[in-house]
């Protein structure tokens, strides 16, 4: 199946490994990601002006004849695109999807498993924007837990899964991010699994020896495309 793809600025720079891995997983699943031509930044959480939803509206308009399902792996881009899709009446009906929304038990069962996660402990960490506000949140709010337990991994960190790591203030007020991230790290165990490039940066920065990985790393490890987690 073909999807329109909105990588966003982080995935073209500091989170380019996530971009590479998302493309790889979609390729392995037999899907094509067609990058939206000439996309502009969605404004993430920094832009406060009225232009915020206009930026995402223009990005959706640029799809023209492309597939109507839009994949946006960055949670901030996903939220802004979803808001814009809701606020404007486009001629075509578009659907904004996060890669996590494609996973269900049927799809997981169809994957070729090379390594399982037996004996490994994980804290799935969603952060804020994937779960809130309700109208832009992902449908299945326990999908990361389902993926990890499907491959026999153990779960911890129920308390922290939806708390805030303060990543949006990382380069504005480091104290805030440092305090919040350390609080989450203290209250969780095992490897931290995230899908947000900013949460990844914040948690990794203050995690000392704890491992912080993207869910894509975990999936590629399970499929045998990566040797280590």
């Amino acid at each position: 199946m073909d999807y329109s793809y909105y990588p966003g600025c982080s995935l073209k720079g500091s989170a380019s490994s996530l971009d590479r891995d998302v493309r790889k997983i979609f390729n392995l699943l037999g899907h094509n990601l067609l990058e939206i031509p000439d996309w502009n930044c969605c404004g993430a959480l920094e832009y406060g002006g009225k232009e915020l939803t206009n930026l995402s509206r223009e990005n959706i308009r640029k799809i023209e004849d492309g597939p109507c399902e839009i994949i946006a792996p960055c949670p901030a881009c996903y939220k802004n695109l979803k808001d814009a899709n809701k606020d404007f009446n486009f001629k075509t009906n578009f659907t904004v999807l996060h890669p996590l929304e494609l996973f269900d038990k049927e799809l997981l069962a169809s994957l070729k498993v090379k390594h399982d996660l037996k004996g490994m402990l994980f804290t799935p960490y969603y952060g804020c924007v994937l779960l809130r506000p309700e109208e832009t949140a992902i449908k299945n709010k326990y999908i990361m837990e389902e993926i990890i337990t499907f491959f026999s991994g153990e779960i911890d960190g129920e308390k922290v899964r939806d708390k805030c790591c303060g990543a949006s203030r990382l380069f504005a007020s480091k104290m805030v991010t440092e305090k919040l991230s350390k609080l989450l790290l203290e209250q969780s165990k095992g490897i931290i699994v995230v899908f947000c490039p900013m949460c990844h940066m914040a948690m990794k920065m203050f995690s000392k020896k704890r491992k912080v990985i993207y869910l894509t790393d975990l999936l590629l490890y399970v499929m045998g495309e990566k040797k280590f987690l």
Partner: peptide, 8 residues
């Protein structure tokens, strides 16, 4: 921190 816990 734009966490939207208040909104939720």
């Amino acid at each position: 921190t734009n966490c939207y816990r208040c909104t939720s």
